[in-house]
Design a protein around this nucleic acid. Structure first.
Ligand SMILES: [Mn+2]
Ligand SMILES: [Mn+2]
Ligand SMILES: [Zn+2]
Ligand SMILES: [Zn+2]
Lengths: 133, 133
DNA sequence: TATCGCGTTAGAATTAGTCTATACTTCGCA
DNA sequence: TGCGAAGTATAGACTAATTCTAACGCGATA
């Protein structure tokens, strides 16, 4: 994903492209992955980039509010951010914490009840917890 | 759920029935519900019961290790404990935080890929995020 | 240049959960 | 009945992810 692609994606999602936001995006959006804020901060530091912790948190919150990334709440001790934003499912290895994507297109769910009155669906996600056998 | 039922369920799950564990179980297992540690502490206090925070956390960890309750990690800021332990799914209202059970028996999932090599399935859970429409 | 809006920042504050050190209970056994 | 070991409970310190606060930077605009 080139710098120009990053800029386009930020603009598509109404995120003004500051240098800090671009750096966070370059780390997180470079490929399909699930990273925590702390992991992103670590990678930025490794790259010699100096973005404050507060800005990383602010940026991730902005990105997910604007649909540029998705929050993944599966590990109770930290939030993961998913660079893949289209609907999909996950394997979650409860021993290692590893998250693996499952494409949505082959999966069919039948027999779900209708939604509670006055509500609309935001997403349907399958989480398969696995462990070493 | 009577005191005797509580005692039986604790014994079935190899949990020795101390008075503190019984009190936590009476709160959480009284009906199908999803409670956080803090909510359980609050209810115990309301009931005039005096169980320490550390003991509530220890007890909930023991209960879930022994299959007496299930952890529900859906709200990134707290862990919920589910008094319903058989496989089932959830609606999650992202605005109110409310969790609603979906019985498992009518739901069918097709087209899931096979598990990663060397792993076995621990659970399959559907989470439907909803919001007011 | 002065002002404004927006973004960034360091560090303090918050808070769920864990840990540590100590005390209490229970129970097997002398 | 007395005693030590194992198991359990507890207060309070601690940890760490996240949020907050208050100040600062900075480009655009008047
Ligand atoms: Mn780190
Ligand atoms: Mn409370
Ligand atoms: Zn994913
Ligand atoms: Zn449930």
């Amino acid at each position: 994903m080139s710098r120009q692609d990053i800029l386009n994606r930020l603009r598509e999602h109404d995120v003004s492209p500051t240098s800090q936001r671009i750096e966070v995006a370059e780390v997180l959006l470079s490929r399909p992955q699930h990273l925590s804020a702390d992991q992103i901060i670590d990678r930025l530091n490794e790259l010699g980039s100096r973005v404050s912790k507060a800005t990383v948190y602010n940026t991730l919150k902005l990105f997910s509010k604007n649909g540029l990334v998705k929050e993944c709440n599966v590990d109770p001790s930290r939030r993961y951010y998913d660079s893949t934003t289209h609907a999909h499912h996950h394997f979650y290895n409860v021993e290692t914490g590893e998250l693996t994507d499952i494409p949505e297109d082959r999966v069919t769910i039948m027999g779900l009840p209708r939604l509670p009155n006055g509500t609309e669906r935001e997403s349907v996600e399958i989480l398969i917890k696995i462990k070493s056998s």
